[in-house]
């Protein structure tokens, strides 16, 4: 292997790292199997990490044409890539679990607390209404309440 040539493993490693992160947001988050556990992205990161290690070895080889510059560039690219991977893993596996405990949420068998809130047209809607008002002519058998974080 000629270490003086263009250090492609390093740069492909960087590209794969970015691809691994952004593909999660753009593609895999929409597929339940890869959203709940992002195995595809972890696989991409694994390949990226291997390439980065090869790239680091190449970048630090003494036979390179401009050894100092090569070492600086290699270090920066590798550092950025590994920080990116670490941030991704942190947000997916640690940060997203930082939820406050909810012990007072209604349990199965309890009455759901009544409420009245405005819908998108500004009309007041109560839970009782939701449970009884017909949908396309037939009253609903049940109401699915989905609380979500909001579109921000």
């Amino acid at each position: 292997m000629d270490v003086r040539r263009f250090n492609w493993p390093l740069w492909v490693g960087l590209l794969l790292t970015l691809a691994g992160g952004f593909s999660f947001l753009l593609v895999f988050v929409w597929i339940p199997a890869t959203r709940d556990f992002p195995w595809a992205n972890l696989l991409i990161f694994l390949v990226a990490a291997v390439l980065l290690f090869v790239g680091i070895r190449r970048g630090f080889a003494s036979a390179r044409r401009r050894p100092t510059l090569s070492k600086i560039v290699t270090s920066l690219v590798a550092l950025f890539s590994f920080a990116f991977i670490a941030l991704f893993i942190f947000s997916v596996f640690v940060f997203s679990r930082w939820l406050p405990p909810s012990t007072g949420a209604p349990h199965v068998g309890q009455k759901a607390p009544e409420f009245t809130l405005k819908d998108t047209t500004g009309r007041d809607v109560s839970l009782t209404q939701l449970l009884s008002e017909p949908v396309d002519g037939t009253p609903p058998k049940s109401v699915l309440l989905v609380f979500y974080r909001g579109y921000w």
Binding site: R97, L99, A105, L131, S132, P140, K141, S142, L144, L145
Partner: peptide, 22 residues
């Protein structure tokens, strides 16, 4: 809100709950 889903029957009773940990 933390994400959560409740299925409520027509009598207003909770029949199914999903409180995610993640």
């Amino acid at each position: 809100a933390r994400p959560a889903e409740f299925l409520i029957d027509s009598s207003g009773t909770v029949r199914w709950v999903n409180l995610t940990e993640n």
